[in-house]
Amino acid sequence: MSMDEKVDLDPERKQEILDLEQKLGNNNLFEFLGVSNGASAEDVRTAFRELSRKFHPDRYFGKQLGSFKVRLDKIFKKLVEANQTLTDDVRRAAYLEANPFVRAAIRNAGAAQAPPIAAAPKTEDEKQHDEERRARLARHPYLLKTNKLQEFVSRAKDAIAKKEFSQAFTHLNQASQADPNNVEVKNLLAEVRKQNDIQRSEGSFKHGVEALARGDDNLALQAFKSAANGGHVLGAFKAASMLDAANGDPREIKTLAQKAVDGEPKNVEYRLLLARSLEAAGMKAMAKKHFEEAARLEPDNPEVKKHVKKRWPF
């Protein structure tokens, strides 16, 4: 089988390539990129860059790849296509137009995150009022649209104030269907997405701490990892340290530690972990750079001293 083919790739990477190759036929470009349905252009581009680290053919320049060369080429071209399509407004619209099932998936994604809000029971007066209004609006499609939009936006704002981001997301999605070009809606959507990520990652982090207290290391690690994915800096560090303590894959530790360092570039502890993992992963030059940076940040730190000394005995 393909997994047994003798090529210059580690089994893990082989598996990743085969997995993504399976998805080549999938016409949902969001899913192919591994982002949520309806993800913003910014998120798409970020995902594309991350995937490029693994699947850009240049990463394997001059290596013996056998049948994996063709697979990689195909995957990267599809990644380029997905990125190109979903980051360009015109092309994205055309793509969604041509693929109703993706549109449906986006709607479902919005709906799944928040069940529709049960309307409060209304008084007779209110009902009458509504009736009148509805009749009036029906005669005036422009107003209808604007009002609907305003209503969704104000509901969304309420939800944001209550930190119920997934609900806010649903409202905004509906608002954006009423008027796809509304700037306020777009900005709010971006904000909500960001806040939602933060909230979720904080939640994950808390789960992680709880799991750790219970002694369930496995669950804690998973929780910290998903917190790290949402951009939680301490979560990334915790996950990296746990893996480090368990002699995990240095490259995975490296990626997590890098996230922690990116979040807090001045934290020596984070940086030392990154440097150690780089060293373990065989990237000596990069490791050296980070040890030096740590030494610059905190020359008196005992671990820094140890490492710098170990490496440069002069």
Binding site: R49, D58, R59, G282
Partner: peptide, 13 residues
């Protein structure tokens, strides 16, 4: 160097 060195972390798009 990036093309010939496995340790390189540079990706060019």
């Amino acid at each position: 160097d990036a093309l010939t060195n496995e340790e390189s972390d540079v990706v060019l798009l």
